[in-house]
Design a protein around this nucleic acid. Structure first.
Lengths: 218, 218
DNA sequence: TAGATTGTTAATCGATTAACAATC
DNA sequence: TAGATTGTTAATCGATTAACAATC
């Protein structure tokens, strides 16, 4: 697989391609052109072909793309079949909701354990995932090859937990706390899920439309 | 306030400015330059000044920006003081986690009601927010000026609920289902929170680094 | 006043779009 | 073969960065 420097915009579109291809596959469609894909995703055919060409040649002239084959290529590019292992730190509401509703497996990620400090949780299993005490985390990490930590602890302890994770070889943090964890020198990858950023952007768009609508009636 | 067409990139940075300014304010800092702000956010001073200039002149030559004043300007741009009202549809794990952990008020949004079909929930209140039966939603919407719906229902009913919301004057949907709701012709604003897209992007970056690291050792 | 820093204009850089030869 | 559609190169467009006069 080619591994040239790919822009962030392209990478952020890959999961959207994947979802759409899954949808097409589920609908029994096994062939798609960049034109059709573009229409359904609101992108130009050019852009889609450019995006794919960052990683190789997946199509066929005069035909387009095989849905299943393209889906597998993109899954592979995203690292979905590398068997990355993850732990969940913090089994509060958000952590619990993730365990219950979110399919890590569908992303090719193996959630192997969860950690919390609450006695009522420690020792139990949820959907097959054991919940251990956070004191055991360091030991667990040293004995297992964990790439990823899902951080869903209270804000107050977010930074200290992050330090423990970083010291114990975690490569990436999927951050559900509202804390900015990215330290300039740290080699750890952080992907933030800032609910408020998302809601505020939406609030902006509602405001914008309200103002436009008002202007139009004047 | 100026309302020129502002690029999506700029809008997505506004909530980050807001968070950083809140942080500075909490730390008792009341003055900041574009240079300092840039350092802390990993942006260039130029970009920050360009971003702000889309909306007006908030700084002062030789001084920089007053943290509190700038914070209020950005809050206002984001529509945080417009008193937008929201309802939550679906009080499962995710919906419950949002009610419990997420501060709508901090985003200037007033969560006035939640809806579900579960008898054990209907009629109760959670953190002051009443939970009604989904059958009452249409009636509720007709009698209240609700801008925003937080969609946290099971995937199977996402589209049908969206239609009801659209027919009853909802302007925007904050979408926590993994369904693609954006219909080409629909005037409703949709902001998707796709957990899987976020995790898959992270998975890509871990893979990329692993490959690079491997290449480096060769 | 001298120093600092803005807002804005111009230059650069990167991403998207268009065009088209290659080819299934 | 003729039609369709790719992968890629060139053109365009937009976003970021640099520079600097204005001014606090």
């Amino acid at each position: 697989m080619k591994r040239v420097k790919v822009s962030n915009n392209v990478i952020r579109r890959l999961p959207r391609y994947l979802r759409k291809l899954d949808e097409l596959q589920a609908a029994g469609i096994n062939r798609v052109s960049s034109f059709e894909l573009g229409q359904q995703l609101g992108l130009t055919p050019s852009q889609i072909r450019q995006d794919f060409s960052c990683f190789g040649e997946f199509g066929q002239q005069g035909y387009g793309y095989n849905v299943m084959a393209l889906r597998e290529q993109i899954a592979s590019i995203l690292g979905m079949n590398r068997g990355f292992k993850a732990i969940l730190v913090g089994v509060g509401n958000i952590g619990h909701a993730l365990m219950d509703n979110f399919s890590f497996a569908d992303c090719g990620v193996d959630l192997v354990a969860a950690f919390d400090i609450k006695d009522s949780l420690v020792g139990s299993k949820f959907k097959g995932v054991p919940i251990y005490h956070e004191d055991e985390m360091q030991d667990f990490l040293s004995r297992n090859d964990i790439s990823l930590a899902v951080l869903a602890v209270p804000q107050e302890v977010a930074v200290s937990v992050t330090n423990i994770l970083a010291e114990n070889g975690i490569e990436a943090i999927w951050n559900f706390t509202n804390m900015e964890l990215t330290e300039p020198d740290s080699p750890i990858l952080v992907e933030n899920v800032h609910f408020s950023d998302s809601l505020l952007a939406l609030s902006y768009f509602i405001s914008e439309r309200a103002d436009e609508g008002h202007a139009r009636t004047n």
